[in-house]
Design a protein around this nucleic acid. Sequence first.
DNA 1: TAATTTTGTGCAATCGATTGTCCAATATTG
DNA 2: CAATATTGGACAATCGATTGCACAAAATTA
Lengths: 352, 352
Amino acid sequence: MKKRVTIHDIARKLNTTASTVSRALQDHPRISKEMRRKVQQTAREMNYRPDEMAVNLRKRQRNILGVIVPQVDRHFFARVIRGIEEEAGKQGYHILIGQSYEQVEREVHLLEKMGKGVVEGLLISVSLQTKNYEHIQRLIRQEVPLVFFDRVPEEISADSVVIDDYDAAFRVTEHIIHSGCRNLAHFAGPSHINIYRERSNGFLAAMNQYHLVINTDWMLNNVLTREAGYKAMEFLWRNRKKPDAIVSSGDYSALGALLWCKENKISIPGQMCITGFANEPFTSLITPGMTSVEQHGFEMGKKAASLLLERVQGKYTGKEVRRVIIPSEVLIRESSARAKNEIKEKQTNHHK
Amino acid sequence: MKKRVTIHDIARKLNTTASTVSRALQDHPRISKEMRRKVQQTAREMNYRPDEMAVNLRKRQRNILGVIVPQVDRHFFARVIRGIEEEAGKQGYHILIGQSYEQVEREVHLLEKMGKGVVEGLLISVSLQTKNYEHIQRLIRQEVPLVFFDRVPEEISADSVVIDDYDAAFRVTEHIIHSGCRNLAHFAGPSHINIYRERSNGFLAAMNQYHLVINTDWMLNNVLTREAGYKAMEFLWRNRKKPDAIVSSGDYSALGALLWCKENKISIPGQMCITGFANEPFTSLITPGMTSVEQHGFEMGKKAASLLLERVQGKYTGKEVRRVIIPSEVLIRESSARAKNEIKEKQTNHHK
DNA sequence: TAATTTTGTGCAATCGATTGTCCAATATTG
DNA sequence: CAATATTGGACAATCGATTGCACAAAATTA
C-alpha cells in the first residue's frame, strides 16, 4: 500500500501546521476563508483522505456496529441485515457481520473479538445452542451497548426487537383449526430460545381456546431442520392415530414434512395441512405453496439499529430496556387451505 | 461505555512504565521473568484487552478485509462469504461485508468508504450495473490489494477466482442437446459482465459444435430476474415457432420461465426443458427439480481470501495477476431430463 | 579490583488527527 | 493615539500501544 497523504504533508506544502490544516478541513471559523480555501484545494489535489483509524482513536469511536446472526444465508436474517445497513449507513456507520452458524463456541468467540474496541455496539440474535449467557453478561458489564432481535435471551436486560411470536403462532393455529383440522401436531424449537417457546405457547393457547385435545405424542421438540421435519413426519405417520395438520415453528422442518408427504403420496392439504414460520422464499415456490409467517425483517433491522445507535450516540441513556414489537403477518397458502377461498387472505395483528 | 483499562493503568498499579508493560505482555526476553509474570497476572486481573484501534494505528494495519457482494441473500454469495470468513478468521482477520444490491452508486460509495484506511484489502464481485471501472482503478492506484471473484472486470488487472463459466454453460447445453432438444433458447445476462458473456459463449459454442441453428430471436438479453424470465417465457411461447428448451444464465430467470410453464400447463421436461445456473437451494425444492450448475462458492471464497491475504501480508508480491479456476459441477434434475436415467449423473470439468 | 558485557527498565518519539491554550498581528474603540 | 478587542494561526498535549535508544545496576571477565 502506498504511503498515505496526511495533514502534515498538506501543512508542509502550504507552510503551515497540521492543526491549522485540520481546522481548515473542518471549516473552523477561526481559520481565514482564504486559508480554508487553499487547504481544501490542496487536500483535494493531493487526494487526501483522513485516516479513519487515527480519527477514531482520537475521538474514541469506531463507526462500526457489529451484527451477530446465526447465518446470513437465511432470508429473514438477510432482510434484517439489509435493514440494519440502511439505518446504520445513514448515520455513517459500517457494519461488521459475524455468523455463529448456530454454534455457541463461535458466538462466544465472535463476541470476545468484537467485544471491546472493535465495534461500538452489537446487534445480536443468539444461536440455537446458546443456553448460558455468561459471554453476553461480560459485554454488559463492560457496558457495550447491545440490542437483541428475534432470538432474545430474556434473562438479559437489554433492548430488543421482536415480533409477537405467541400471537403469530396463535393465529396460524387458529387458521388451521378454521380450516377444519382437529388433530394438530406441533414441531417445536428448543424451548430455551424465547421465540420457540412463545410459538409453542401460542399453539397451545389456540388449542385450548378451541377445546381441542393436545396429544403430547405429537408435540415434537427440537424439530427445526429439514431432516428433522422429514423424520418427524415419518414418525407421526407411522403411528396408528395420525394427525391431520402440522404447525411447525420453522419453515425448514415444515419443508421436510411436506417433502415426506409428497414422496409418500399423502395429499396436502387434503390429508395433511402444514404450516411453517419465517416465510423463506421457498415457501412460495414449492408445490403446494406453504403457509408461513412473514416477520418483516427489514423493519426489524432498521428498528434494532436505530435503538442501538441511540444508545451508542448517547441520545438515549435511560436505564429501562426498550422492547419493540414489529407486526407480523400470516400468509396463507395452499398447504393449509382446505377452503380454497382462504388463500391470499391476509391476517394482521389483532388477537391478544 | 466504561473507561477501558490501558497499559498505563497496569503500569501505575505495578509502579513501572507503559513500555515495560507492553513488552512484558509480549513476552519480550529483555523483561525479567518475574516482571513478565506480574504484569501478565495483573493484566488478567484487571481484565485488560488491548485497544485494537491503537495497536492498528501504530502498526499501520487493521486486520479487516472488506467484502463487496451484490447481496448476501443469495446462496452462492453466502457460501463465498462463509469461505472467506473461514480463511480470514484463521489468520486473525475480521470481515466487513458491503452489499451493492446491484447498484453502481452503492458500489462506488462502499469502495469509497472502505477504500483506504478502513480495510487492508478487498474481495469484490461487481454489481450488474457496473460498466465503468474508474472507482476500482482508483483503488488500484492507491495500491489497495484487491481480489475479484465470480464477476470479474476483465479490464482490471488484479487477482481473481472464478469458475469456467464457458465450460459449464457448454456442458449444460450439451446435456440439453443429448436430452433430445433441438430448438434451444437462451437467457443471457448483461454482456459487459464476464461470467454472463462466457456463459452465452459456451452456449453458442455447444450449439455450433452440434450444428444446431441459432435462432437470434431466442437469444434474449438481460434476462436474469424471476420477472424477466416469466415474461421472456411468455414471449417465446407466443411466437409461432416455439423453442423446446431454455438454457438460462441464472436460476432466477429459469425459475420465472418454469413458473410460467407450470401456470400454462406446459409440461416440463416434456414440452420444455429448462436449466438454470448457480444451484440456488430452491432449484432442488421446486417441482420439477431444476438442472443447474454448482459453483462451489465456499471453495471460491477460501481461495479468494487466501490470495488476498498473501498480498496483504506481503507474502506474495509478484506483479503478475493470478487467476484461479474452481471446478464446477452440472447438476442434472428433472427439468431437463427427458431420458430419466440421466438424473443424478454428475458431470465434472473435462471439456475444453 | 578495574574493565567490560549483560540484563532490566525507563524515556521519548511515533502512528494521524483533534483540540485547548497561548500569542502576535491587526482592527476597533474611547 | 493609547487601550482593548478581535482574528488567525502555531504549540503542544492527547488517544493507547509500540519500539529504538540510553543508561544504571548486576554479572562476568581479565
